[in-house]
Computed example of a mutant assay.
Amino acid sequence: MTENPKQAVCGAALRKLVLDTALELFSRDGYFNTSIHDIRRQAGVSIGSIYHHFGNKEALAKALYDDLLQRMDAGLREVMEREPGCRARCDGIIAFLFRAAQDDPRTMRFVLEARHREFLPHEPPVCSSQPFMRMRECIEQGIATGELRPIEVPVAATAAFGGTIRLLQLHLDGVLEAPLSRYLASMQEAAWRAIANDSPNATNNTTNNTTQEPEQ
């Protein structure tokens, strides 16, 4: 009998293989309908190697959740460091989320739609995670510089990014009439109009951003 080539995977490569497989199965079948044996069988690795790296299914789910949030936060941090003003940052964040939903829909679905606290009861709500705090930081800085209206930060953050998140969910559910990228420019404009400080005395450190649409 020919040995499964995946059996030779070890170390960091094995960890990534198991995390990718868990993401696929959790996204498709749900956490509670997926067993460690399902993951072992799909990944083609030994059950002992999974327990060695992760301990149990809950620990594996937490490792996956943390990994996905770290990757998402890294992308948002890059936007915040690259763009000089609030308008450019808001547009960049929305564009990043659009690209993520198009390029890796399983990850976006798991982050946005999985009921994490049902199987990770000690984790804070996803809206309190670092990526969402990064988006809040963008809003706080915009209010501080006068680029945004001086309204409550949760209200401004919801107005800026809540519509985007809802649009991503519609995309993931396959109910949008056009490709997601078609809505990028109008989503960016609508989000900015909802929060921008149009007062004649407002400090405006940015010009209208022209973030390109992600490729379809």
Rank of each mutant, 00 (worst) to 15 (best):
E3M: 08
N4F: 02
N4P: 06
P5E: 07
K6F: 11
Q7T: 12
Q7Y: 09
V9P: 00
C10P: 00
C10I: 05
G11Q: 03
A12T: 09
R15K: 14
R15C: 03
L19Y: 01
D20L: 00
T21K: 00
L23H: 02
L25T: 03
R28L: 13
R28F: 06
Y31G: 08
F32L: 11
F32P: 03
T34N: 08
I36C: 07
H37E: 14
D38V: 04
R40D: 05
Q42S: 13
A43P: 01
S49K: 07
S49N: 10
E58H: 04
K62T: 05
K62S: 12
K62C: 07
L64T: 02
L64F: 05
Y65M: 11
D66N: 10
L68W: 01
M72P: 00
G75T: 03
R77Y: 07
E83N: 10
P84I: 05
R87M: 15
R87P: 07
A88D: 15
G92M: 03
A95P: 02
L97D: 03
L97C: 09
L97N: 04
R99I: 03
R99P: 01
A101N: 03
D103R: 14
P105D: 05
P105T: 08
R106M: 15
R106T: 11
M108L: 15
V111T: 13
R115D: 15
H116M: 12
L120G: 12
H122Y: 11
P124G: 04
P124E: 05
V126L: 05
V126F: 04
S128K: 08
S128I: 00
S129E: 09
S129R: 04
S129A: 13
Q130F: 06
Q130C: 02
F132Y: 08
F132K: 00
M133L: 14
R136Q: 13
E137C: 04
E137F: 05
G142D: 06
A144M: 08
L148I: 12
L148C: 14
P150I: 05
A156P: 00
A160N: 01
F161Q: 00
G162N: 09
G163I: 04
R166Y: 12
L170W: 10
L170P: 02
L170D: 15
H171A: 13
L172K: 11
G174W: 10
V175S: 14
E177V: 12
R182I: 08
Q188V: 01
E189T: 10
W192Q: 03
S199R: 10
A202P: 06
A202T: 06
T203H: 15
N204F: 06
N205Q: 14
N205G: 15
T207C: 14
N209F: 09
T210V: 13
T211N: 12
Q212H: 10
E213Q: 13
E213K: 13
E213N: 13
E215A: 14
E215T: 13
Q216P: 09
Q216T: 12
Q216V: 11
